[in-house]
Simulated scan of single mutants.
Amino acid sequence: MLELKKIELSDKQWIDPLLKLSDFRGCEYNFTNNFVWSGVYNITVGRFQDFYVSKHGNCFVFPAGKGDTDALLSELKNYCDSTGIPFEFCSMDIKDKQMLEQRYPGMFTFDTSEDLYDYVYQSQSLATLGGKKLHSKRNYINRFKQLNWSFEDITPDNIDECKQMSLEWCIRNDCDKSEDKSEEMCAVGIGLEHFFDLGLVGGILRVDGRIQAFSYGEQQCSDTFVTHVEKAFTDYDGAYPMINYMMANRFCKGLEYINREEDMGEENLRKAKKSYHPCFMVEKFSAVYNAGKGQSE
């Protein structure tokens, strides 16, 4: 039977090549995200043929990789039957949803929530902020450039400043009063602690030599960069637009898209992400097995 275990940093060596086989843009198909959020979402992982299998709580993310899909579904269903959990998928890419509908008609019931859709932007759009729609963002950038500012890569010499800023940001934003914020900052901290082993890249924004923002991410797939984290103080107007702008120019050249992940239904975050006018959203679906219905296995 399929064996699952808690994800470890050393698993990156075998997981990344399987993720690469599918080349998904969705942020769930990313080792860093699975690793840093594993404690919050109880993520366990395993391998079946050349499929990467990850289970978030009691729900499988539809496996990335390649192999016999019939055998894969049979293995996952047997696992669910033997462990007494429902057979269901979460955060499924639309192509896999369509595949299940075509190959196994009536076998699954599908649902979706826009709260989980990833926001994807043209890299050039975020790097240039051209056009009337982004005029206000350019104004923020131009005003910020009048300050005594600087931008630099995150390196072993300055990463401790990011850790300190993360703690201060948490204090300023009352993370102790919000479970969601506390969990997020725990994930941010794990990312910073293992930053270089995870292959992350990022930048620091300073004003008068003091850190005011940091951000980090990595290449998600063949044409997309994913921004995992973006944190800024609000001491100076435009810190968030400026770190976003600098990251796009520093790390996203040669990649067509930037995935800035989901808004989780948080209204202020949704407003901020929409204000940059995404070129499309990565739609995600859930699928629940209908026992005794549809095509037989």
Rank of each mutant, 00 (worst) to 15 (best):
L4A: 09
L4N: 06
K5Y: 11
K6R: 15
E8R: 15
E8T: 14
E8C: 11
D11Y: 05
K12T: 03
W14M: 08
I15Y: 03
D16M: 09
D16Y: 08
L19Y: 04
K20W: 05
F24W: 02
R25D: 08
E28V: 10
F31Y: 04
T32I: 00
N34E: 07
W37P: 00
V40Q: 05
Y41V: 00
V45Q: 01
R47Q: 15
K55V: 09
P63A: 12
G65W: 04
T69F: 14
A71N: 10
L73V: 02
L73Q: 01
E75L: 11
L76V: 01
S82G: 07
G84D: 09
I85R: 10
P86V: 05
P86L: 08
E88D: 11
F89N: 01
C90P: 04
M92H: 05
I94G: 08
E101I: 11
G106K: 10
G106E: 09
G106I: 09
T109H: 14
D111C: 15
T112I: 09
S113G: 09
V120A: 05
Q122G: 09
Q124H: 12
S125P: 04
L126P: 01
L126W: 02
T128P: 00
T128Q: 07
L129R: 04
G130N: 12
K132W: 08
K132R: 15
K137S: 06
N139E: 13
F144S: 01
Q146G: 12
Q146K: 15
S150F: 05
D153F: 13
D153P: 10
P156M: 14
N158I: 09
N158S: 11
C162M: 13
M165Q: 09
S166M: 14
L167Q: 14
R172M: 11
N173L: 01
K177H: 02
K181V: 03
E183R: 07
A187R: 04
G191V: 05
L192V: 07
L198V: 05
L200T: 02
V201D: 01
G202F: 01
G202A: 08
L205P: 02
L205C: 07
R206G: 03
V207I: 15
D208K: 07
S215G: 06
C221L: 05
D223P: 01
T224Q: 07
F225C: 04
V226K: 03
V229W: 00
E230C: 11
E230R: 07
K231L: 03
F233I: 04
T234E: 13
T234M: 08
Y236W: 12
D237V: 12
A239M: 07
P241Y: 06
M242E: 07
I243F: 07
Y245E: 10
F251N: 00
C252P: 06
K253M: 13
K253I: 12
K253E: 14
Y257R: 08
Y257H: 14
I258C: 15
R260N: 12
D263S: 01
M264D: 10
E266H: 06
E267K: 14
N268F: 03
L269A: 02
K271F: 08
K271S: 12
K274E: 15
H277G: 03
H277W: 05
M281E: 05
A287Q: 04
A291S: 15
G294R: 02
